[in-house]
């Protein structure tokens, strides 16, 4: 299939499914109350989902502890401490990037 046609098919199909995912429960629960257990479970969506998104970007995991001893992991831990203490997005970014650059430069890896 022609590249442009394939690209736009993907754009509209993925875009439509993404939108339906976003709209799903907003539309579903618009006119009824949510079960209390579901409401309780949803409080833990951000902590669980965001952590699951973050770790593969930070850790190149091949099943050995050495995968954890990298500048990226150390920089991410420093950024986590800064974010926990300050709740500042830019502070977290600054601390994390500065730590990564320093560590990469100092151990040249």
């Amino acid at each position: 299939m022609e590249t442009a046609l394939k690209l736009w098919t993907v754009i509209f199909a993925v875009g439509a499914l993404n939108y339906l995912s976003r709209l799903s429960f907003i539309a579903l629960f618009a006119r009824r109350t949510m079960p209390p257990l579901l409401a309780r479970a949803l409080r833990y969506v951000p902590a669980a989902m965001l952590t699951a998104l973050i770790l593969p970007m930070v850790i190149d995991w091949h099943g050995t502890p050495a995968d954890l001893a990298t500048p990226r992991v150390a920089a991410a831990l420093i950024a986590t401490a800064v974010a926990f203490a300050t709740r500042s997005t830019l502070g977290t970014l600054g601390a994390g990037m500065a730590a990564l650059w320093l560590l990469q430069w100092s151990c040249a890896c």
Partner: peptide, 15 residues
């Protein structure tokens, strides 16, 4: 690396 850092800034205050 700024991508995970953005998510860290969102999630760490929840801990």
């Amino acid at each position: 690396f700024a991508v995970p850092l953005c998510f860290i800034a969102l999630v760490a205050p929840l801990f």
